[in-house]
Amino acid sequence: MLVRGEIGPVNGALQPVSRHPVALALAFAQRYSCAMLTYAAKRLGLALLVALAVSVIAFTLLHVSSDVAAAIAGEAATAADIEFIRKAYGFDRPLIVQYFDWLGRTLTGDLGQSLYYKKDVADIVLSKLPVTLILGAISLAFAVLLSIPLGVLAAVYPNTWIDRLALFLAVIGQALPSFWFALVLIMLFSLTLRWLPVSGSDSWAHFVMPAIALGYYAAPAFMRLTRAGMMDVLSADFVRTARAKGLSPTSVVFKHALRNAIIPVMALAAVQLGFMLGGSIVIETVFALDGLGYLAWQSIRHNDFPVTQAIVLLLSVVYIGLTLLADLLNGWLDPRIRVQ
């Protein structure tokens, strides 16, 4: 007979697991590959279709809404000049032909010439992209680091002062327009306290306020989703099981609850990053941060449609990519999708 608490181990059913990275990777691929690969392939296919649709829309809108030849020719051009440009650029051909022609060039990285800067659009856009990506990443990090702990605390201590504080911050965040908030920040930290530079993008200090202004706007959505998810999960049966096992409150809240509540938050984060890249047009302009958003604003002011179009297209593709990433992340975090 076995004595309580002293059941001896085991008739050697454990298989030796090799710790070699290649072996691990292979085992991993074997276990997950089918379900995850099918899932990923489906999502990728969908993303490509959306990207194609976006390219059609971006192209059509431009060519239907304005006379591109007139824009290129400039304000002083005569009707003959415009006609000449129309022929020279092939704008007299059927739209569908122009579309495939344009798509082909775009795919090979040829985005045309900037009308204002007289330089390669691809070069201009790519040179500005890092600033915007850095801004987006810092903003997202700021939003996530602010909102997830607050959301968790609010859910663990519902209807207490911490919950109310979180709600208060969320309402403020959603109510304040980001450009206004940005101006308040500038007045406080640059003009009054003189801690941070007002504008420019030369050092890390230049990114602090733009990132706060941009991230603060996204934080409420994360916080509310985290709180709602945590409230749900904390009353789930499996959390009670975790408590019944005598696990520490930290393990119950973070390992068991947050791990499940975070899945939709991660998905939202990827999508929000897309919105932030869009929102950076305003913020970069307010702070004269030399990124894509600022470039977009400049190109619109100068009627520089090849640049505008390239930015719209690039942001769309980035956005689609992020949505795809969100889906993959979702599958990755949720074993019910990952392992069939």
Partner: peptide, 25 residues
């Protein structure tokens, strides 16, 4: 209490479908 729970006293619940955490093996 936490030190006793899961060690000296343990509990099994009614709903096996929801009593395990879906995210862990």
């Amino acid at each position: 209490m936490n030190a006793l729970r899961g060690d000296r006293m343990a509990m099994i619940f009614q709903e096996p479908m929801t009593a395990l955490n879906p995210a862990y093996t």
